[in-house]
């Protein structure tokens, strides 16, 4: 029973982080049609910024907030500085074919990932370092019993839950949220409604940048921070996004939690070295059984 609870709580808190990564990927995929391989590079970079600030005696919370804001700015910068100029180059026949249109941004995102890793190496020497947690990472005790959950796990679950609630309110209750859903579903009708689709797209890059920056801040107290730490997180997050249907925000979050449980249970009941095999098997099963994703069907696509 105790190992079950251990796996369950670890799965929930890890799944919450995967959900954030997956949400970030789906936001940019829906909003801009790009699979952003640089996403966790952006998160790594902003986590380094937070780490630097904490070293310079800033409080954890001010570093936390500044990292999130830099995540948003970095996301917007990637769109405005690289993706938008790439997509508006109309005079080349090569760039105009449909397959190149979808491939070029993906290659560009890999390039951005490389640049961010190199910059992190230059600025912070690329050595692995710890990243602090705002609450204890030791197991909680209730009376004389050890609980299978740490204070930091609760913190992660709470922060992600709050983020998801705010995101849901933003998408379903605000005009800007409606504009974002509409531009993802039908850019032409949205433009004909007078909405600046380009700005909406930049906004989805910014929100995605914030979500992945948050994921970086929440995962590094357990994994430490180096230019390559977050690469695995991208793979798991991408799997979660595909399992969730790639176009559904709710599906991406669900996919994140499911993957969290799969990984945690394999870790506890099998062995850590089987985790990647399990992810692969799970992805293949999901693609065979529900290629459109858990929530990828048309009716439930609305957030």
């Amino acid at each position: 029973m105790n190992s079950f609870l251990t796996a369950f709580f670890a799965g929930t808190s890890q799944g919450a982080i995967y959900a954030l990564v997956s949400l970030g990927l789906v936001l940019v995929w829906r909003g801009a049609g790009v699979v952003n391989f640089a996403q966790m590079g952006q998160a790594m970079f902003t986590t380094y910024i937070a780490s630097q600030l904490i070293q310079n005696e800033y409080s954890y919370w001010s570093a936390f907030v500044i990292a999130l804001i830099s995540g948003a700015l970095l996301g917007a910068l990637v769109d405005l500085g690289i993706m938008r100029p790439l997509s508006s180059r109309k005079n080349s026949l090569l760039l105009n074919s449909q397959s190149m249109r979808t491939t070029i941004p993906v290659i560009a995102s890999l390039g951005i990932l490389g640049v961010l890793k190199a910059l992190a190496g230059i600025f912070w020497a690329g050595e692995e370092r710890g990243f602090p947690a705002p609450v204890p990472t030791t197991g909680l005790r209730l009376g004389n019993t050890d609980l299978a959950i740490t204070g930091f796990d609760l913190f992660v679950i709470g922060v992600v839950f709050l983020t998801l609630v705010l995101t849901t309110i933003f998408f379903t209750r605000t005009g800007m949220g409606l504009a974002m859903r509409a531009s993802a579903l039908n850019p032409e009708v949205t433009r004909l409604s007078g909405i600046r689709v380009g700005s909406v797209r930049t906004l989805s890059w910014a929100i995605s940048g914030t979500a992945s920056s948050l994921a970086g801040l929440l995962v590094t107290p357990k994994t430490n921070l180096s230019p390559n730490t977050l690469d695995l997180l991208l793979i798991v997050g991408f799997t979660a996004a595909v399992v969730g249907g790639l176009t559904s925000l709710a599906g991406s979050v669900l996919g994140g939690f499911i993957l969290g449980y799969v990984i945690a249970f394999v870790n506890v009941y099998s062995a850590p070295e089987n985790v990647f095999l399990a992810i692969l098997i799970f992805l293949l099963l999901a693609l065979f059984l529900r290629p459109q994703g858990i929530l990828g069907s048309k009716e439930v696509r609305r957030v």
Binding site: L178, A182, L185, V189, T190, L192, S193, G194, I195
Partner: peptide
């Protein structure tokens, strides 16, 4: 304002959301 060919509405959004979309820019 243009009403494009083929009854262009966004089928995944509700009727009210489609109408709201049209006026969003001057909200």
């Amino acid at each position: 304002a243009q009403v494009p060919e083929g009854h262009a509405v966004i089928s995944q959004l509700s009727v009210a959301e489609n109408i709201e979309l049209g006026g969003l820019f001057r909200k």
